[in-house]
């Protein structure tokens, strides 16, 4: 069973009195353990697709099965549980909470899941070490470099041991060398831990590191 099976999915945004079609007849199947790059121009619908896959956004028609479960039929609570236990997000702007330390940021998603309270600290430390920033655990994220912040964000994404990591331009705010490092971390998670990774990017070099590339143009998805 594929991890993600999207068929004929359409998504519109209300704009004024009319509608704007952001995703049109999208078909996409992603198997477990794949590393997928999504490319496309600005405004083509990459983030929209990622939001739909990540259950943050709803869609108008078509079907989306996550691991065989019909996402359309899920309640808000069920989707939240899915995000808490199955899906990790990594974002261009890191989306870390600035008044917290790295460890606190990483521990945060566990407050929403089923992890017992007593194990939260340990799991956060594990994730930090996997992402290579264990030494920075007690630093406030405002005092960190971009690369370190993104590593913390990756640690946060993998702390709940997800099956899927969605990365929206994870290297967009970083220089070349740091970008390669971050991609290295994601690749390793994919290869060693078997986590399915979907990376949105403008950068062909980054995309080439992934096993498979899909393109999106005006809301339509095209495979290489």
């Amino acid at each position: 069973m594929p991890l993600i099976k999207i068929s004929n999915l359409n998504k519109t945004y209300p704009v004024g009195k009319g509608k704007f079609a952001a995703l049109k007849h999208v078909d996409l199947t992603v198997e477990r353990g794949e590393m997928l790059a999504v490319m496309g121009k600005s405004g083509s619908g990459k983030t929209t697709l990622l939001n739909v896959i990540g259950t943050l956004d709803s869609f108008d028609s078509g079907s989306y099965l996550y691991n065989g479960h019909n996402v359309k039929k899920m309640t808000d609570g069920a989707k939240a549980n899915l995000r808490a236990s199955e899906i990790g997000f990594v974002h261009q702007d890191f989306l870390l909470m600035n008044r917290k330390t790295a460890a606190q940021n990483v521990a945060f998603p566990l407050y929403f899941g089923k992890t017992p309270y007593g194990r939260i600290k340990k799991l956060a430390a594990d994730a930090l070490s996997k992402a290579g920033v264990l030494e920075q655990a007690d630093k406030h994220v405002t005092d960190m470099s971009g690369g370190q912040k993104q590593r913390v964000a990756i640690a946060r994404a993998l702390v709940a041991k997800p099956s899927l990591i969605l990365a929206d331009e994870p290297t967009g705010a970083l220089d070349r060398a740091t970008a390669d490092e971050i991609m290295g971390v994601l690749l390793e998670l994919n290869r060693k831990n078997g986590i399915t990774v979907i990376v949105v990017t403008h950068d062909t070099e980054i995309a080439d590191m992934c096993g498979r590339i899909v393109y999106i143009k005006d809301g339509r998805l095209m495979e290489e």
Binding site: A80, A84, F89, L95, M97, F112, A160
Partner: peptide, 11 residues
């Protein structure tokens, strides 16, 4: 961010 990390509306 809470929502992204798995917080439901209700929560």
């Amino acid at each position: 961010i809470w929502r992204i990390l798995g917080g439901s509306r209700l929560r």
